[in-house]
Design a protein around this nucleic acid. Structure first.
Lengths: 228, 228
DNA sequence: ACTATTAATTACGCAAAACTAAAAAAGTTA
DNA sequence: TAACTTTTTTAGTTTTGCGTAATTAATAGT
């Protein structure tokens, strides 16, 4: 039990890079992550990324061979997971206690996740009675740094007649989240696939007493579990 | 009503300087604040301070003539008061909801006060039902940026036989706060001055069922209102 | 296998915010 | 008033994180 993780002492920037790399790595296991993807994801130049990766390699949070693809060390992963935990706990707090809407929580949580205080996050977790999911349905990593990924099916992968329940939405776009709220979808909504139009892959769905037509792109960002 | 304050767009550093200058200016109206005092207060070099003051003057938050003393513009003051409001609201939250102790709240609030979100602070205020005082007894400025200063008397200014009630403590030192807690003093404690020892100005006080001897320096940091 | 393209890297420069050391102005005192 | 002290300011560096432009390595296409 030697590894007391090198708690903190990271700059905001270093944290951002580690978290981003983690997100890219888990997004699709099979696809390798290179300097350029990371740069594009963070909206900085490849040179900046290269620089930062060099630093993170020196600190043993990132592994990669010269001109090779990127990977995180165990410690790098642990830091990223702790950041995601903080982010999702703050989102939950903002949503459940401070009247923030689905689409407002992300930006503020992005700031709050960099606050350095172990006690703060432990107590926030306790205060909210150890929530399991954030407002978008994502699982909140526990204090031991365990990161669970549920195998996910998108609304777009279902067939006509299927019935499903909304378990999570991608939180990448504010406009998407606003749209989801606007039509009245919430977590746990039961959704029936009425029709899939071959022409443009748009989908007619029914939930509560509403019928809506959504695009394929929209349905790709909606995660569900099948009911029927 | 033209002045919609230039909300935010300040770096953490700029905010720190404005807040520090404000604190120094209100600490003692009569004493002028110079470059060196500000530098010492912030524990940076006079050159750094001079640099930053130059920048803040260009942005019209600070006024001063070359080789002259420092002052804040109305806008500079407004920003400082908003920071103090945020700081004290966060301290209150940490203390009342997250089991932080008196001496633990300051450092974390120091980070949290720089989070940029008007809604966050408004909602936090509402969530706590618009608290009037922070855990150290300090008045929390309201959303309109009004800053109230109560005329204060220190424990050290009283005479033998006086009875008073603790209204606030200086939150500048963690060790001091720990000490206050340790001997059992809390806000509203009723304190009786038993004896003032001329030799070293130390003071024997009684509160609850405790008798303690405290130094002059200690008593300077304890703010009270007289009861008898 | 040779060229074209893409990706990674290096070599600069810039801005913010800190520093040290030295110069200049202001204030104090004999 | 001259000399000394204190305070403010300037000058020159350092660190961190970003940028552009040019270079080098890896990958693909024919």
């Amino acid at each position: 039990m030697t590894n007391k993780i090198n708690l903190n002492n990271l700059t905001k920037s270093e944290e951002d890079y580690l978290k981003a790399l983690f997100q890219l790595l888990i997004e699709d296991d099979s696809v390798k992550v290179g300097n350029n993807q990371l740069a594009e994801y963070l909206k900085v130049s490849p040179a900046s990324t290269n620089n930062m990766i060099k630093k993170l390699k020196a600190k043993d949070y990132v592994m990669s061979e010269k001109y090779g693809k990127l990977d995180l060390t165990e410690e790098g992963k642990a830091i990223a997971v702790r950041l995601i935990r903080k982010h999702r706990l703050w989102e939950t707090f903002l949503y459940n206690y401070l009247n923030f809407t689905w689409d407002e929580v992300h930006d503020v949580a992005e700031q709050l996740e960099h606050i350095k205080s172990q006690k703060l996050i432990d107590e926030l977790d306790r205060f909210m009675d150890f929530p399991k999911n954030d407002p978008h349905g994502e699982i909140i990593p526990n204090g031991d740094g365990e990161y669970f990924i549920l195998p996910r099916i998108t609304l777009s992968s279902l067939s006509e007649g299927d019935v499903c329940q909304l378990v999570a939405v991608d939180d990448g776009s504010v406009n998407f989240l606003k749209y989801v709220s606007k039509i009245g979808l919430v977590l746990s909504s039961e959704i029936k696939i009425l029709e899939i139009r071959e022409f443009d892959k748009s989908i007619r769905i029914q939930f509560d007493n509403t019928v809506e037509t959504v695009t394929r792109k929209f349905a790709d960002n909606v995660f569900v579990k099948k009911v029927v």
